[in-house]
Write a protein that binds this DNA or RNA. Structure first.
Lengths: 339, 339
DNA sequence: CTGAAAGCGCTTACAG
DNA sequence: CTGAAAGCGCTTACAG
């Protein structure tokens, strides 16, 4: 059985292919009798229009590319979910690219989106703003950056103020009496990491506390365990008593590593995470965490994108907007004063 | 600035478009001098080939569709990750569709894959085998079912023996002395749920224990809390002392709900989850869980798909294979005997 | 080695 | 209302 085309449908319904196209795209314009004949043929054959050909001819499709650093991180998964719901409600399809915390992979994903001529892109980027963003702009593909402010006015962006987030995390630890504080995060090529660290340092300075920076390769479980091993080996008199982890994945694994090796949380070491994923509240010791409004991030990103697409469709000018949410601290047992 | 096409590149390099096509696809066949001229023009213009046109003409692309029930569940996220790594290594692109535990959405995703004429599909289906699977087969799009045995010999499949999984979970609880056991899971339209329950019932019967089935709407946090509220209200003398949750998300939220309302785990109620996601070990009380080899599932699914694609390319016959992994139980504190 | 031409499966004016 | 024809951006034999 050969591949089906519109031609096959036309032949079976004994009409021209233009008519088949019309029953697909402008059903009202064709006589009911003809329409039914064609619809019957479509059903009999099980034909599905070839989107590639449609888009090639029509010039634009309805697929939106979502590129994200790490689908494995519940923060991104939830953000994606929220964005998708909005897009889907507006008749767009979402195609997700998972960069696996790998810049090369991210580049490949963006190139694919470009080649696929997607109608728009939502990007939660790794590292510095990728060069491909310029290419997308050049190709007239609306792009919105998520979880990160735009480096330029090249596109819309939605993010949270990570400097403020780092600040409230460490301010909290300092207010609990901690004077030896540590930041666990990495890689430092991530803007998010730089900002959170910057806020943490400012808060430590203001509070008269020392801030030790423990660098880890990635924001995942393995890194959290690594950091725990490192901290456990430190001289208790020099060891930090309050630790701010750059995300909850790291914080949860760090907490687990600590308790597995006999340290108590928060008595020996208090911990604050970042993202406030659902698992934070369910951790071995319920985890304090800086909450980002991830659903809002996802929804807003989708809204901004749809607005830009609408402007493009209407041939209107578009002004790029950048919205920034403010994170909030959720305090739980992992950093509550117990002494 | 209008959209760029190969024609623009050809004009700038002063060659024919056929030659541009050749430097893209068969660089060795064109004179180095010409090649460089063309590559320069491509770079100058920032042109990227239109994949739609390429595929339309060439007849087949290199994009694989991955449709999954719920990207928010770490089990699926990890499975996807493993599958993607294999596909990527073989030069394929993965596009992920997230069904959001919604059958209508799943149908939309599969239709989109069909219209996009993806080269293959990996599907972790919701509910019964969707009708679209037949449509994919008809369109000669290789499809492999994941986390589920095939209903027929229509396609390759890879899954785990969920009946065995349910059985070992409850056998363990029974062996710990529990005689009032409960199963928490749903919706019962999911084959996975039916199988796990079936295994649980068999084990309860064999062990002389009662099995209460607590039905919840979905396999997520909210459902776990719901179930906890329900169990807390039961008469302690009738209340189950051992609970098997259909996945770890439910189990973790259930555990959290129980402890928040004053019940102790495992002393009052022992818990066993399913999937053994990374968070299981980090739960408030480290969670016993039935482990599915999710990386192997993802990898194997990708391998089976690539094999089928290779067979199709070589015009060879393909015999569909169905591989089934056996789950194993990981015992942690949530079900360890402490009395 | 390079160019001219046909065609992939559609949509879109334009006749009739 | 329906059909015939051109063309979207490419690839692929086929001449030259």
């Amino acid at each position: 059985m050969a591949r089906l085309s519109m031609r096959d449908v036309a032949a079976r319904a004994q009409v021209s292919i233009g008519t088949v196209s019309n029953v697909v795209n402008n059903p009202d314009i064709v006589l009911p009798a003809t329409r039914e004949k064609v619809q019957q043929a479509i059903a009999d054959l099980g034909w599905v229009p070839n989107q590639q050909a449609q888009q090639l001819r029509a010039g634009r499709g309805r697929t939106i590319g979502l590129a994200v650093m790490d689908v494995t991180n519940p923060f991104f998964a939830d953000l994606l979910r929220a964005a998708q719901d909005v897009l889907f409600a507006h008749g767009f399809h979402a195609t997700i690219g998972d960069a696996n915390i790998d810049e090369a992979r991210q580049t490949a994903i963006l190139r694919t989106f470009l080649q696929q001529r997607v109608r728009g892109v939502i990007l939660g980027p790794i590292g510095p703003q990728p060069l491909e963003v310029a290419a997308l702009a050049k190709a007239h593909i609306p792009t919105v950056l998520v979880d990160r402010a735009a480096d330029s006015v090249e596109c819309c962006a939605v993010g949270v103020d990570d400097v403020a987030g780092g600040r409230i995390a460490v301010e909290h630890l300092v207010s609990q009496g901690h004077r030896r504080v540590a930041f666990v995060g990495g890689p430092s090529s991530l803007k998010q990491i730089q900002d959170r660290l910057e806020g943490a340092q400012a808060a430590a300075l203001d509070g008269g506390a020392d801030l030790l920076s423990i660098s880890v390769p990635q924001l995942d479980f393995a890194s959290g365990r690594l950091a725990a091993d490192q901290v456990v080996l430190m001289d208790p008199r020099a060891r930090p008593t309050g630790v701010f982890c750059a995300n909850d994945l790291v914080a949860i694994a760090f907490l687990q590593g600590l308790t597995a090796q006999g340290l108590r949380v928060p008595d020996d070491i208090a911990i604050v995470g970042y993202d406030n994923i659902d698992f934070a509240a369910a951790a071995a010791v319920p985890l304090s965490s800086v909450a980002q409004p991830r659903q809002d991030l996802g929804r807003t990103a989708a809204d901004l994108l749809l607005a830009e697409i609408a402007d493009a469709d209407a041939d209107r000018d578009h002004v790029h907007t950048s919205v920034s949410f403010t994170p909030t601290l959720v305090v739980r047992a992992s950093s509550a004063l117990t002494r």
